[in-house]
Simulated scan of single mutants.
Amino acid sequence: MSASKQSTQRKRTGLGALAGAGDHAGGDAGEDFSVIEAIGGPRGVVESMLPGVVFVVLFIATNDLNLTIGVSAALAVVQVIARLIQRQSVMGALSGLIAVGICLVWAWKSHEARNYYMLGFLTNGVYAALLAVSLAVRVPGLGLVIEFIRQMPTERFRAWFRDWMDDKALKRAYMIITALWLGLFALRLAVQVPLYVTDHVGALGVTRLIMGIPFWALAIWVSYLVIATPLHRHKAAARAREATE
């Protein structure tokens, strides 16, 4: 894969898609930016959701935790093998396999199906805490991530940091989307933890699916709408400065 293709793929996946948001601001923004591609494409969506769907459906149908764990684990492995056979990138499927593996081991060791979702609670809690701290110190966490993806500060970190932090409009946009993502993680915990505590595994599984990829896609799309214009103007100003130097 060429460097240009790798860059394009990076920008169109997850938060990397937001790093290229300024490139698509304007009349063709809706055509260039795809939420489906930003969350991994149709296949990536299916691979992300399928183990969770199988887990909750099979457990509700059989109430057999060992069978549910075995089938879910086999499915995650098959997804990686399919990628290997087709000679496609396995990083997404492999990271998914590791995450599913941790969840399944947690449920198996504790003998409680609800603990399949414990890793998700921990990661959402950590993300929410980090974003809350970043808002408190007025350094938007999403801004750090997007700017790091957009232009990795291999040197002159202070200049890189001040470049986007001193742009009031861009910083404000980053603060808004950081608050948005903090709200997303907090909402997930507020809705799902009570279901975990009361051991409503079926309802918890369905809620996790609804608040998973669909919420992620919505957050990416809204974030794109918020930052596209200020990021485009920031990039244009940077190019103008370079042209005069």
Rank of each mutant, 00 (worst) to 15 (best):
F148S: 14
I60W: 09
T229F: 15
G96W: 06
V80R: 01
L131A: 03
R158I: 15
V77D: 01
A186M: 06
S223M: 08
V80M: 09
Q151R: 15
G92P: 02
I102C: 11
L170C: 00
R150K: 12
D23C: 08
A179P: 04
R233S: 05
Q151Y: 12
H111T: 09
R43T: 12
V77K: 07
A169V: 08
A217V: 03
F185L: 04
A132Y: 03
H200F: 15
A236R: 15
A132K: 04
W108F: 13
M175P: 03
D163F: 09
I177T: 01
A240I: 10
L131F: 06
F215C: 07
A29L: 15
P140H: 01
I102G: 05
L119V: 11
P214G: 05
C103T: 11
W106R: 11
F55A: 08
G16C: 07
Q192P: 04
F185E: 06
R208E: 13
S223I: 04
W181P: 03
A237M: 11
I149S: 10
I36Y: 04
K5N: 12
A21L: 00
G44C: 07
L184M: 14
Y174F: 05
H24G: 05
V193C: 00
V78W: 14
S7V: 15
L50T: 04
V139Y: 12
A136C: 10
Q6E: 15
A190R: 07
G27S: 13
A21W: 00
D64G: 00
V193W: 02
I98K: 03
D64W: 13
I213Y: 08
Q151G: 15
R12D: 14
H24C: 09
A240L: 14
L195T: 09
E242Q: 13
A19E: 02
T229H: 14
L67Q: 14
E47N: 02
D166G: 02
S89V: 02
F157I: 14
